Amino acid sequence: MTTAFITLGLFDILDILLVAFLLYQVYMLTRGTVAINIFVGLFLFYLIWLFVTALNMELLSNILGKFIGVGVIALLIVFQQEVRRFLLLVGSRYNISQKFTLDNWFSFEEVGVKEEEVVSIVAACENMSNTKTGALIVITKRTDLFSFAETGQILKARISSSLLESIFFKNSPLHDGALIIANNRIVAARCILPVTDSSNIPGSLGLRHRAAIGMSQATDSHVIIVSEETGNISYIMGGKIKVRITTAELRTFLEGDFSGFIV
């Protein structure tokens, strides 16, 4: 009587699927960054350890095993930004209470901006595009951005096209940095954003674009950019960017229709 060399049960299949899903998520988080090379290197290191262990090469196996033993800590250190990004996205997407607010300025009850504010933002971006005035506008979705807002000047002001243009006017003390919008209000200006480490960004895009992409990767916010060099308007969400959009496209995106969004 012979038995199968490998037996697979329901939980074995589930185990394989879960591991495959986790590896895929790690790949998606590190894709396009220098971290993907580190991840591949660690994976090859693990395969070598399995190989020498199978060959009963005790000395080399013990040496490599010591590194494997602290592998989790090493991964947390190496991929700290990716792990933080993943936890932020999971926490904001599956937030049950949805009550983590500060002075009601980051309430999760309202997502995006209302029609009146959309008109003001589009008008301001159009005027700044015509005058080649650089702008960086972050719109909060569900992630609490107060930690980023407090790096700048807290405003808590109503949205208007004239105020947006005044803030980003080149001689304004608040023009350098990002403006954060939450709950249909301008929460803060001159804010510092995290810069992406992605290597897939075209060289024609400057530091303002890299900061916008980094912010959209670290949080679920959407970001608008007006280029100071060309006057082009760009829209970023989830680390994906659409450049040289029209004001009509900008309004469509702000209204929540992303059917025409191109990576």
Rank of each mutant, 00 (worst) to 15 (best):
M215T: 08
F148T: 01
D197A: 07
S147G: 11
T143I: 08
S199E: 15
I154N: 03
S161N: 12
N200P: 01
S162G: 13
L136Q: 02
V138A: 04
D144W: 07
F146R: 03
I167W: 02
S172L: 00
A178F: 04
H209Q: 09
R190Y: 00
S161K: 12
N200H: 12
N127G: 14
S204R: 15
M128Q: 07
S161L: 10
E126W: 06
H222E: 15
D176N: 10
N183K: 13
I180P: 01
G206I: 11
S162L: 09
F169M: 04
Q153D: 07
A211D: 01
L155E: 05
A218S: 14
N127E: 15
H175C: 00
S204N: 14
T131I: 11
I201M: 08
S166W: 15
T140W: 10
L179Q: 00
S147N: 14
D144C: 12
N127K: 15
A149M: 06
N171P: 04
A188I: 03
I186C: 01
A178Q: 02
K141R: 13
I180H: 00
G214D: 07
V138F: 03
L164D: 09
I224P: 11
I159K: 06
V187A: 06
A188K: 00
T140N: 13
L193M: 08
P202R: 04
N184W: 14
A212D: 05
K132Y: 10
N171C: 11
